[in-house]
């Protein structure tokens, strides 16, 4: 099991993961689950009615829009990096945060490496399952790397042009 690291108010901490990732052909266990978009669309309503937290994992090829109307009921959206080079999840995360106003956990799963964590944070991810064994300190260092950023994104950091105005 990969470790779960959460980032809250800029601080990284290892966290117990209350969620079980359930594959489409697996029986649903008790408790909180993360399921595929397809399973969620078929069965999500019923599962949420069972008083448990439900998360959805999106493939990088899936559209965030498919989830948009149900987002308020979803606890976690896990965005999958099939390879760290596949950058679609950055767009998915920004859309979740900035367009659909999702306030739950956006978790990076799959080929999640410390080198990309700075970008992930900026796009609105706040939970990580590092694939390279990175520790909280490693992620914190990666996140602190750049004192300045040039663009607005989902993290609310002040871009260079705003710093200059001050």
């Amino acid at each position: 099991m990969p470790t779960l690291i959460r980032c809250e108010n800029g601080a990284f901490a290892a966290a117990e993961d209350p969620f079980t990732r359930v594959a489409d052909d697996q029986e649903l266990p008790q408790g909180d689950v993360i399921i595929s978009l397809q399973r969620f669309l078929n069965d999500g309503e019923r599962l949420i009615g069972q008083h448990r937290a439900v998360g959805v994992v999106l493939k990088s090829s899936e559209e965030v829009a498919a989830l948009s109307i149900d987002l308020a009921k979803v606890a976690v959206v896990a965005l999958d990096f099939p390879a760290f080079r596949d950058g679609r999840a950055y767009t998915q995360a920004r859309l979740l945060r900035e367009r659909y106003g999702f306030e739950g956990e956006v978790r990076a799963v799959g080929d999640v490496l410390r080198e990309q964590v700075g970008f992930m944070l900026r796009c609105g991810f706040d939970a990580f399952e590092p694939a390279d064994g990175a520790s909280c300190e490693d992620l914190a260092m990666a996140a602190r790397r750049q004192r300045h950023v040039y663009q607005r994104a989902a993290d609310g950091r002040r871009p260079a042009f705003a710093e200059r105005e001050a």
Binding site: F84, R85, D86, G87, Y90, T91, R94, Q116, G118, F119, M120, R122, C123, Q146, V149, Y150, Q151, A153
Partner: peptide, 10 residues
């Protein structure tokens, strides 16, 4: 704008 763009680096 494009330098280390968080969304468009991959």
């Amino acid at each position: 704008w494009s330098s280390l763009h968080p969304e468009f680096s991959y």
